[in-house]
Amino acid sequence: MDSSSGGQPYRILLLEDSAADTYLFRQALKNTGLKHDLTVIDDGEKGLDFAKRQGDYAAIAVPDLAVLDLNLPKAGGAAVLAAMRQHPELVGVPVIILSSSDAPSDKERTQELGAARYITKPMNLADYLRIGDQVKELLLESRAALERGA
């Protein structure tokens, strides 16, 4: 794969409490053929620990991309996103919001916090699996931007 030059897999972080959705997301990533390393956090509080680089999740490597679900117990994806934007190590990480909510208010709120994309979880399996394409696209875009910046 051209994008995984140097053999370094893309580090992707997924904040998702539904095992079913996590499974589908893995399938979607697999379909892209992209070399990746997926870390899953299934709880909002743990997500906040990660975003603030504290507790058990302080050691998690800074990801190339974060995919956040909005509706989680304790703390939602929006709170995690907001915390990430406060932390110097995580402030530049591109974020995709993946939510079952199609409320405009949710879209606006997360866009203001700097989410790159907002994807409503599709009813249709084929559409779900195509989420992988969007992930790949964004990863390649940000990699290109980084290289230009370097």
Binding site: S18, A20, D21, L24, Q27, N71, S100, S101, K121, P122, M123, N124, L125, A126, Y128
Partner: peptide, 20 residues
């Protein structure tokens, strides 16, 4: 609009997955 639709979506997606 939210909670009830959530399991329905999963139901639908996984049924399709089985079909495939």
């Amino acid at each position: 609009s939210h909670d009830l639709l959530e399991p329905l979506r999963t139901l639908s997606n996984y049924s399709q997955l089985l079909v495939r």
